[in-house]
Simulated scan of single mutants.
Amino acid sequence: MKAVQIQTFGAPEGLVLVDLPAPVPAAGEVLIAVEAVGVAGVDVLIRRGALAAYGFTEGFIAGSEVAGRVTAVGNGVDEEWLGRPVWAFTGTGGGYVEQAAVPLEQVLPLPAGLSPADAVTVGSSGAVAHFGLAQARFVPGEAVLVRGAAGSIGVMAVQLAARQGARAVAVTTSSAERGKRLRDLGATHVLDRSGQGDPDAPNGYDVIVDIVGGEAMPSFFDLLNPNGRMVAVGVVGGQPPADFGTTLMAQFQKSISFATFSAATIGTADLQAVRREQFEAVARGDLGAVVHEVLPLDQVALAHRKMDSGEVFGRIVLTP
């Protein structure tokens, strides 16, 4: 089968299409003929080598979610799965492939009306947005700011905060056109990347969901209300300054707090329950799956160049 390996860290050209033996499902696994692969921000960080300290090495196959049809089952798996359209979490990688063998507990059937491309646009990002808001202890009636809202996690966080009763959903983004699209998804205020630019925006926020990180992250502590909470769910802009805790402590009298969130801390059953509900919501039209573009697997370098340029709104999907 065809697969994409990160042969050299750095530029997108280090992603190379190679031939590998097709996998065989082990006991408790299903084999999926992949029809769609989600391209996530974490894939870009892995490809750049920014996460090498976490054990990602050259030769790694990126991609954490796929969708397609089950073509074979391992021992102990009901043959009724054969032929079913499914979504699957492939772990920290292994999704940029034509065929994927995945443990059954990481697989969900697709409801009628949900395409494979929509499934890999929502599957991981929607769960991160859901549990990120929960980590921030968000409750209806609070003001929320989503920093870096144009990516797949941000798009879902905007929709979920609006759907769950936020009194305001502000976003930071890079252009008026993106701001308009985010308003269509539920945003009430559009800010520039510094968190300014809308005179009608709230003076402060109860919750900030931060997908960006980077050098500017500590400046957003100033935008938190007393008892406000910031949760970092990504660092697509790089790590924050090593001394950002000093800025946090300068706000001591406001009792603000900072936390991180990784889906790795949530049990599989809880993650799958949220994904199932969100898949059904997208199929009904209650949530939007924002697909930026669909590209063939052999254009993976182009997909990553688009990610690097910051032009992606929603999620790029690869099709083997």
Rank of each mutant, 00 (worst) to 15 (best):
I61V: 15
I61Y: 08
I61A: 08
A62F: 02
A62K: 05
G63C: 10
G63P: 02
S64W: 12
S64L: 14
V66S: 07
G68M: 04
G68T: 01
R69A: 09
V70N: 09
V70Q: 07
T71A: 10
T71R: 10
T71W: 07
T71M: 09
A72E: 07
V73C: 10
G74Y: 04
G74S: 11
G74H: 07
G76W: 08
G76V: 08
G76H: 08
G76K: 05
V77T: 07
V77I: 13
D78N: 15
W81H: 00
L82M: 12
R84F: 01
P85E: 09
V86E: 00
W87V: 13
A88D: 03
F89A: 14
F89Q: 12
G91H: 13
G91F: 13
G91I: 12
G93Y: 14
G94F: 07
G94K: 09
G94V: 07
G94N: 07
G95W: 06
G95D: 02
G95E: 05
Y96S: 01
Y96H: 09
Y96E: 04
V97Y: 04
V97I: 02
E98W: 03
Q99V: 01
A101W: 11
A101I: 11
V102Q: 07
V102N: 03
P103E: 03
P103H: 06
E105W: 08
Q106R: 14
L108Y: 01
L108S: 08
P109L: 13
P111G: 12
P111W: 11
A112V: 13
G113V: 03
G113L: 08
L114Q: 06
S115K: 06
S115L: 08
S115F: 06
A117T: 02
A117P: 01
A117C: 05
A117G: 04
A117F: 01
D118F: 07
D118M: 09
D118P: 04
D118H: 14
A119W: 02
A119M: 06
V120T: 00
V120N: 00
V122Y: 00
G123N: 00
G123P: 00
S124I: 12
G126H: 05
A127H: 03
A127R: 02
V128F: 03
A129D: 06
A129S: 10
H130V: 02
H130F: 13
F131I: 05
G132W: 02
L133R: 08
L133S: 12
L133I: 12
Q135Y: 02
Q135I: 02
A136R: 08
F138D: 06
F138V: 12
F138G: 07
V139R: 13
